[in-house]
Amino acid sequence: MRSFTYERPSTPAEAAAAVAAKPNAKFIAGGTNLLDLMKLQIETPAHLVDVNGLGLDRIEATPEGGLRIGALVRNTDLAADARVRKDYGVLSRALLAGASGQLRNKATTAGNLLQRTRCPYFYDTAQACNKRQPGSGCSALDGVSRQLAVIGGSDACIATHPGDMAVAMRVLDATVETVDAQGTERKIPIAEFHRLPGDKPEVDTTLKTGELITAVTLPKPVAGTHIYRKVRDRASYAYALVSVAAILGKDGSGHVAFGGVAHKPWRVEAAEAALPRGAKAVTDHVFAGAKPTHENAYKLKLAERTLTAALNQARA
């Protein structure tokens, strides 16, 4: 870990200004990902702005009938919130499918959206990784790639977004609220929040420098069975090979997003009309243009079969 300076501002706008003011500054909330990355010098911020004291830790009803989730609401608290459990079951289930109890106690809503990839080459500083060190190359392309992206990748990067919560947020059409150093507020649809790697894989999101997430809002609840089905190599404490976040009616109609397959939660709204016709019709469309490696091509079949499981659950 490199030495860094540290401050605790008292308002979101101050926090945003503090990060914007110094080169190589970063926000820190739960620190469950950032601190690990700093120890390995994958992240080397010179200055940390602690946002834990900003009071962004409430869940409130919105006038539109939805929920506004403060950026600092812990994963455990969000998953346990009675309104979330009742009306946004997919979100509660996704949260509980992720990490461990200890980590969920510490990890925050905003921080969860910002967690970085778990590609093994991102973590090994002796290996080429364009996301960690732009221009160094991508060892994963012809390396160990069983966990990595099958769609939306580029010649520069096939990393995945490793999280579960964001996949549920995506199917819920959440909106990320931010404030910048000038105090300007912005609302970013979740679909536009994470980006694809393209030729700039070092940039995970569309946030600007110093732009601080203050809340994530959910629109009013969508009826249907809320399902989060996470498939992994062991029963707990593992990243998704594939996950399905879905809100489905008895006839199979509804909405679906996939995790563990791309640099962002993967959803193709235009494919959802095919849901009543079964999984294959949907996944053929959702994964059109997929470019898997020989190690991760199984994810396409797995995504289809996992969606089948979700459809069966909704119909039952």
């Binding site: 778990r118 060892s139 012809d142 069983r146 190599d233 062991r234 593992a238 990243y239």
Partner: peptide, 21 residues
């Protein structure tokens, strides 16, 4: 997991090398 091109075990931590929980 062997990276047969670069010659090492790539999943060299307990997040990548999964043992039963």
């Amino acid at each position: 997991a062997v990276d047969t091109k670069r010659g090492f075990f790539a999943n060299h931590d307990l997040a990548g090398y999964e043992v039963p929980v």
